[in-house]
């Protein structure tokens, strides 16, 4: 008798649990829907003009850029292929939420992507979730660990600049970016991005970089690679220390240290 009573209780409890689970599941989905609804509103207000209704980068501004035939490689990103440049994650990885958050708030100066520093936190979070929906595989791909850029105390010191100069040669950065970093190396004239359009290597003497020109940004650019642009990842081909010496040298190319 006792046994039956208990199992009845267990049964009732299980049913109850499933009921709760169903309610929580629908609550989770409802919550998700609300986020996406808000994300869509934010997207349509701030992003659709460039990135397009389908997230394929073919917004109204796309036509304008084409007509004016501005410099090569400057057009809104197509989110549908799930390839992002300015990540803290390794090559082949999707960006972390914080990477997207940062792009949205500071913009990409060089590419006419505006900054949105005043976008409320909830709206920024929502638009990020909405942008993810343009790439069908997003949910299935395993998230990658962000790479932490921790600059050493000796960054920019003469000895480190000298080591960096040798690395610039040995690692063949000059082949694309040029001897003096002007973006005019022997391989610079035939580079194509994932959309088959011509792209030019960054000119270190020109000032503002796309992802930012703090030492950490320079370090991450060639550590992670700028996927989709032809700029490869050196994470597996250089030690962490060497990558920082190379930053020292790029600071010199940029005129920031002697």
């Amino acid at each position: 008798m006792q046994v039956i009573k208990i199992s009845k209780a267990v049964f009732a409890f299980t049913i109850l649990l499933w009921g709760f689970a169903a309610i929580t599941a629908s609550a989770v989905f409802a919550e998700e829907n609300r986020t996406l609804e808000l994300g869509k509103i934010v997207y349509e207000k701030h992003c659709v003009i460039c990135h397009g209704e389908k997230g394929d980068g073919k917004g109204a501004f796309f036509a304008v850029v084409q007509e004016a035939s501005l410099a090569s490689g400057i057009y809104p990103r197509d989110f549908t292929i799930g390839v992002f440049r300015f990540r803290s994650t390794s090559t082949g990885c999707l960006p972390a939420n914080d990477d997207l958050r940062r792009i949205i708030s500071s913009g990409i100066l060089r590419s006419h992507m505006p900054s949105h520093p005043d976008l409320p936190e909830a709206e920024a979070t929502a638009v990020i979730e909405y942008v993810k929906t343009f790439f069908a595989e997003w949910g299935q791909m395993e998230p990658c660990k962000p790479i932490i850029a921790k600059k050493p105390a000796w960054l920019g010191m003469p000895d480190s600049v000298k080591k960096g100069e040798k690395l610039w040669k040995d690692m063949k950065c000059w082949e694309c970016h040029g001897d003096m970093g002007k973006g005019d190396g022997p391989k610079s004239n035939q580079l194509k991005d994932d959309w088959g359009k011509q792209i030019v290597p960054y000119d270190f003497t020109s000032g503002a970089a796309k992802r930012g020109d703090a030492p950490e940004d320079i370090y991450l650019a060639y550590t992670t690679g700028l996927d989709g642009s032809g700029m490869p990842s050196y994470e597996d081909s250089m030690s962490d220390e060497d990558r920082w010496h190379l930053v020292s040298y790029t600071l010199k190319l940029m005129g920031l240290v002697k």
Binding site: D78, I81, G82, V83, T91, G92, D170, M171, K172, D194, W195, G196, Y222, G225, D227, G228, G230, M231, P232, S233, Y234, D236, S237
Partner: peptide
Amino acid sequence: DKRSTVYNLALPT
């Protein structure tokens, strides 16, 4: 009419 980068690795050595 496009591709989607899976990995882009530098092999300088």
